[in-house]
Simulated assay, not measured.
Amino acid sequence: MVFAGGLYAQADAPHDHYRLLHAGHLPAVLVNAPIPALGFPCVSTDDAVAVEQAWRHLTSLGHERIGLALGPPDHVPSRRKPAAGQAVARAAGGPGPPPEHVVRGMYSMEGGHAAASRLLGTGVTGIIALGAVRAARRRGLRVPQDVSVVRYDDSPLMTLTEPPLSTVRQQPIDALGRTAVQLLTAQIDGREVVRDEILLEPELIVRGSTGPRAAR
């Protein structure tokens, strides 16, 4: 079995069914970060690198007040991203994002819109979020002239928006799929596999939704 998402990524969710599968020696692979100690092989995109790429891109354009919209607090990938934002900001000599620049919500267009609206209310000029362009326009702000937007996950549809969205390609589907199948077939063949999380590199795709910080 290959699990491409599930409760294994949520710390506060029940996990007994995964432990039963593991105890039964079922060949299985998890795609994207699980809670610790489940014991299954796992392949994920490096969430820390994804934040670092987006953050460095925005700071290179002069943005100093950058907001992060994240998933629920018990979601493992969402737990990793604020620490990555703090680390890259401090490495550049800054203090890191204040608490009001990190907003949590549901992983959906509506949840991203709500989170981005809250961030815009704090005066950020760069946002790493889903749904931020719509939230900016409802406030009468232009993208990227007034606020720059980077979102997670890429798709061909991102070139069809206005403006085309800069993204961090967090789901390299071919590489994730190949690695998951290799881990699975190795288990089926009775070979030993790596039980640590295998991290793949994301890719920043720069398009029209990011630009220099407007002069104040």
Rank of each mutant, 00 (worst) to 15 (best):
G190Q: 06
I127K: 03
Q145T: 08
H75I: 03
E52A: 15
Q170G: 14
G24K: 13
R139S: 11
H17D: 13
R213F: 03
P77T: 01
L200A: 02
P144K: 07
V193W: 09
G211W: 00
V194R: 15
K81F: 02
V149N: 10
P156Q: 01
L21N: 03
P144C: 11
E197H: 00
V2G: 03
T179L: 15
H57S: 02
P73V: 11
R56A: 14
V181E: 02
Y152N: 08
G177Q: 08
L120A: 00
T125W: 04
R19M: 04
Q145W: 09
L184N: 02
E203K: 08
A215T: 11
V168H: 06
D74I: 01
G177S: 15
V31M: 15
T179I: 05
Y18M: 12
E52N: 02
T45N: 14
Q171P: 00
V43Q: 04
K81I: 07
A83N: 09
V76Y: 03
A215L: 14
L176A: 07
P202V: 09
R118N: 04
P202Q: 02
H75M: 10
Y107E: 07
V194N: 14
G111K: 05
Q170P: 03
V193P: 07
A84T: 11
V43W: 10
M109G: 12
G131V: 07
G24E: 14
A50N: 02
A83Y: 01
E110H: 13
A37V: 05
T59S: 15
P34E: 10
L26F: 11
P97D: 10
W55E: 01
I127W: 03
R178Q: 15
A129P: 04
A116C: 05
L157Y: 13
D16G: 13
I205K: 05
P99E: 13
R207E: 00
P14N: 06
S108V: 03
R90V: 12
D189P: 04
G24D: 15
M1K: 08
P14S: 10
F40E: 07
A215W: 05
A33R: 12
V181I: 14
P156W: 04
G140Y: 02
Y8K: 05
G211L: 09
I188G: 06
M109K: 06
V168C: 09
Y107I: 14
